[in-house]
């Protein structure tokens, strides 16, 4: 399993639109992908899960991937988050 902690860089955090972007990316891979805010851990391929995480801008989330393409999956999903979803950054 591969894991990385990153900061949510956009002002509004992971609301609906960013959640959709994360889910779409995570669903491209065979591996299981999870996101955790330290309290809850959710499946990154579940839009409802990612939304209920409600990760605010500036908070740190832990992303992990496990499976045959776990490195690529982790890389891909982290890239989406780091891009700030094309939104206004903090």
């Amino acid at each position: 399993m591969k894991t990385r902690a990153i900061t949510v860089p956009n002002k509004l955090g992971i609301h609906a639109r960013p959640a959709a972007l994360i889910v779409r990316k995570a669903s491209e891979y065979l591996s299981e992908v999870f996101i955790s805010n330290g309290v809850d851990e959710v499946n990154a391929k579940s839009i409802m899960g990612v939304m209920t995480l409600a990760a605010a801008g500036g908070t740190t989330v832990k992303i992990s991937a496990e499976g045959p393409d776990e490195e690529k999956a982790l890389e891909g999903v982290c890239e989406v988050v780091e891009s700030g979803f094309g939104e206004e950054m903090l």
Partner: peptide, 16 residues
């Protein structure tokens, strides 16, 4: 388009 795409993701949520 964005609204419909979002609805489809909800519909296809694997955990739910």
């Amino acid at each position: 388009r964005q609204i419909v795409e979002f609805l489809r993701l909800l519909l296809r949520d694997p955990v739910m």
